[in-house]
Design a protein around this nucleic acid. Sequence first.
DNA 1: CTAATATGCAACTCGGAGGTTGCGTAAAAT
DNA 2: ATTTTACGCAACCTCCGAGTTGCATATTAG
Lengths: 115, 115
Amino acid sequence: MSHKRRSSIAAKRQARVPVFAALGDETRLSLVAKLCGGQAHSISQLTEGSNLTRQAITKHLRVLESAGMVRCVRTGRESRFQFDPEPIEGIKEYLDFVSEQWDQALSRLKSFVEN
Amino acid sequence: MSHKRRSSIAAKRQARVPVFAALGDETRLSLVAKLCGGQAHSISQLTEGSNLTRQAITKHLRVLESAGMVRCVRTGRESRFQFDPEPIEGIKEYLDFVSEQWDQALSRLKSFVEN
DNA sequence: CTAATATGCAACTCGGAGGTTGCGTAAAAT
DNA sequence: ATTTTACGCAACCTCCGAGTTGCATATTAG
């Protein structure tokens, strides 16, 4: 049982890796910052202001899409990307787990010193 | 003022990038999982169980150290690494900002639909 | 003192990430 | 109908990240 829970946590951890990796890039992080405002944007709109090529932005968007953080809907001649909050909620959950582990460790240390 | 706040957010975002990048790797994520338990570990201890070389683990630890997520204290012939929660708190703050933006967008959409 | 342990440093390989350019195509504008 | 706009696809380049190996050094054990 304990073993089963351990591997489940490991599996969850593995699932978080692409999300963290997707956020580990300045360009993609700013794309997320724009898209989380709620409005969907086309590739051209997202390229505007960035000193990168449209193709570069497209690749970054595909990375975000693979991580599930963004969805693409093609309408007419333009494909608009919209934010999806689920993966970020997932990694927040994981980070809370890490923080909790750390806090419990501090508590154990404190009670050890006091006794 | 609004411009000042914008650039401040951009600066904060840039500071978070190395932390996200550090977490965007399965090996490093499992190292964090071990170290956040509170106990400091030597490089050999952290290598044990991993099918990687000690040097590989060392490099990963240096990446985590550069991101400020871990600190190295050399004692005798071994260098022990201990967890530092500050950067993770930082990115949690950033992710909360993103979620808040998204929630506000949903609220605006909802009130728009209702009226 | 000698052997074993724990680590650091440097060179090297290899694959993939980030980025560009060129070209082809569908859709919208004029 | 023609031009412009918004894309997608593919080839290519460059550089860095991940990992290994080999060797040198300091510390601890016997």
